[in-house]
Design a protein around this nucleic acid. Structure first.
Lengths: 226, 226
DNA sequence: GTCTATAGCGGGATAGAC
DNA sequence: GTCTATCCCGCTATAGAC
């Protein structure tokens, strides 16, 4: 996650400890004293290497956004068939969020508390370019009647909801059911499969007379029109 | 939201100001000084009427949970046909969350920071009774082949995701697009309709030879089998 | 009831010795 | 580079005057 050349051991320890604490507990709930204790350094050392608590936070937030955007964008730029693209997209969310489970709630929180400061960091990643890419794919598929007519931003919001929310829900669910984190991970891996079929079922158009059978071949309606 | 008999005017002002601040900014990010300033009272007054910051918070958190659970549970106990029940369920989320948009992120945050303390407050509402109710409805519908085979808790998690996440996403979306809160509310009201059809499309089974046509009458596949 | 004043703590940051 | 000591601030809570 970080460039580790030319950094002392202490600096690296502070960075990894701070990453863990900031992402788990957020900016306000993490103290420099916590970071110092967790990295086996002193408060003075944290400020020596990273001018202030906030500049340290900025580096970490930036890298967290990088990790998230890079992986998701890569999956969206593939040339796969549409339903496989969707599956790759979902997989990329699940992969990155399995690695940093607190990332969504962390990002939403920090944006709630400091919208202007952090928004420019989002925009640098040019989210609109990937939006237009998706828009084109979706409209093409709909025009070929391979999927239903689909409002693009509503659909994207649904994808985000279905992929991201289960990770935000983790602490509530494990507390309610008494499940362990590993239990919840197992559950999530099963849930992912249902999310994929759920989305494909929602998009797949109802079969009509005279339409090309191939459009409905793999996911539903196999016995219709035969 | 609150019982206002036998409370002085100051007490009421403190309570409403604190509700607003706690739900918008969370427990830690809200200071007693903020509450005093916003309610035109003094710090000492806040502690005079509500023994401590935390007991004040507890009252407010409790009432927020009440507002959320009561309305959602009521919609789930209706005898409506299944797809209409789903729509009523979705509507109840949107109604309560239009009223308290920050509630989800507030609840998830506080549970992240103090799981044990606050979990008993969730359990008092007996979420399992409503889970079993839904389980029965879903399995009945599936057995009558009115919907696909549906894993209950995966489906409930999808419902939660699709209803709750858009509200958590508000600040990020409005900051990114420059939209106002009213714009976003308009968008949400449109989005709600798509969520309803999305879910119904995902559940509706593919038509099969020899099956009762009525099952597929209203939402898709109208021209099939005719 | 309501206020002012303050106790007491934990936070971020830094000075200065080594 | 690293540490200890300390400054100064904002916080919660309460004491005590009115």
């Amino acid at each position: 996650m970080f460039n580790t050349r030319n950094t002392t051991d202490v600096q690296r320890r502070i960075l990894t400890a701070a990453t863990d604490l900031f992402i788990r507990n957020g900016f306000r709930a993490t103290s420099v004293r916590d970071i110092a204790a967790a990295s086996d350094a002193s408060v003075a050392m944290v400020n020596y290497y990273f001018r202030s608590k906030y500049t340290l936070f900025e580096m970490i937030f930036e890298d967290a956004l990088d990790a998230l955007f890079e992986r998701v964008f890569k999956s969206l730029h593939s040339e796969l068939p549409f339903f496989e693209l969707l599956e790759a997209w979902i997989n990329s969310y699940y992969e990155i969020l399995m690695e940093y489970p607190q990332l969504p709630i962390f990002i939403l929180n920090e944006i709630n508390q400091d919208p202007k400061q952090l928004m420019s960091r989002m925009m640098k990643r040019e989210p609109y370019s990937v939006y237009r890419l998706l828009e084109k794919r979706i409209n093409d598929e709909a025009q070929k009647q391979l999927i239903r007519e689909t409002p693009v931003h509503d659909f994207i919001l649904n994808m985000l909801s279905l992929c991201v929310f289960p990770f935000m829900f983790r602490n509530l669910a494990t507390s309610l059911t008494g499940a362990s984190n590993d239990d919840y991970n197992d559950m999530l891996n099963e849930h992912k499969k249902y999310v994929v079929t759920f989305i494909i079922n929602a998009l797949t158009p109802p079969p009509k007379r005279g339409v090309n059978e191939a459009a409905f071949s793999s996911f539903s309606c196999e016995e219709v029109l035969t």
